[in-house]
């Protein structure tokens, strides 16, 4: 573990990325403390403050660091709360996808036969199908809302986890000690939990980091298209979408600042994921 961390720390870019991720997560968690305004409290919004540029001192008596949006929301507050929602969605989708994918992948590897064929065929078919379309259709069918959105994201992403879990689990199964364990009267569950899961988990966690980033940007895309979360709880994607129409008239900050927050978060998570993947990939080891 220590050696792993030391190797990770050798890559300065990855180290910086990790710091950024932690910073953003910290800021999002403590949003109610730092944010000058509760952007969900419609009563605190004043249309007189709408579409004001950064630095404007509004009716609330404080400076709008990043300006305000079309409803007069303080953008800085809205971004902090938006990050909270984006992270929530990303983590929820990532964890559930990981669980579902791991379950299916290990089941396929353990069961073999037609169960294996059926599961993996569906998984492969889905992998060749663009995730965004699937999510789009599901959101359209299920309607808007946090739960519906997570379901759509999971449906779009579980296949990556299933493929990874299946690959790792079937490689593990062929190893002698697992076969030996299978010959003893240990229960299958015991073998799965003691031998297979510990070996399947590391690659899954690597996939999970990247997929959390993907989920966040997928959610933002869906929200941007107007198919994500309800407008009462604006995520980053919706903040960007709301500002889009004012961009042509030069009020670029409404879209740009939430966008910067989004890409910094997504790129940082991806860089952390890249480093984890390189470090756990035996083919790149010397």
């Amino acid at each position: 573990m220590k050696a792993f961390w030391r190797e990770y720390a050798e890559n300065r870019v990855a180290l910086l990325a990790l710091a950024v991720v932690l910073l953003i997560v910290g800021a999002a968690l403590s949003a109610p403390i730092f944010a000058p305004q509760d952007p969900y409290d419609l009563a605190s919004l004043d249309l007189m403050d709408a579409r004001r540029p950064p630095g404007f001192v509004g009716s609330g008596g404080y400076t709008h660091l990043l300006g305000t949006d079309a409803q007069g929301r303080d953008l800085f507050s809205a971004i902090l709360y938006g990050l909270r929602i984006s992270l929530q969605m990303g983590l929820a989708a990532g964890t559930v996808s990981l669980a579902v994918g791991a379950l299916l992948g290990i089941l396929a590897a353990q069961a073999g036969g037609w169960v294996e064929t059926a599961i993996m065929r569906v998984v492969d078919l889905q992998l060749s199908f663009p995730a965004i379309l699937l999510a789009l259709v599901l959101v359209a069918v299920l309607g808007q809302g946090k739960t519906q959105l997570v379901i759509a994201l999971v449906a779009a992403q579980y296949a990556y986890f299933a493929r990874t879990a299946y690959g790792a689990a079937s490689a593990e199964r062929r190893k002698d000690y697992v076969e030996a364990a299978a010959a003893t009267p240990l229960s299958t569950l015991h073998i799965v939990f003691r031998h297979i899961l510990p070996n399947v988990l590391p690659p899954l966690i690597v996939v999970a980091t990247v997929q959390v980033a993907n989920a966040i940007s997928l959610e933002a895309t869906l929200s941007f298209l107007g198919l994500g979360l309800p407008p009462t709880e604006p995520s980053l994607g919706m903040l960007i979408a709301n500002g889009f129409q004012y961009m042509m008239s030069g009020r670029t900050w409404i879209s740009v600042y939430p966008g910067i927050a989004l890409i910094v978060l997504v790129v940082a998570i991806n860089l952390v994921g890249d480093q984890l993947r390189d470090q756990t990939n035996p083919r790149l080891r010397r």
Binding site: A213, S217, T221, F244, M247, G259, L262, I263, V266
Partner: peptide
């Protein structure tokens, strides 16, 4: 990693 819609904007 940067979402397509953001690049478009």
């Amino acid at each position: 990693s940067v979402p397509t819609f953001w690049v478009g904007l």
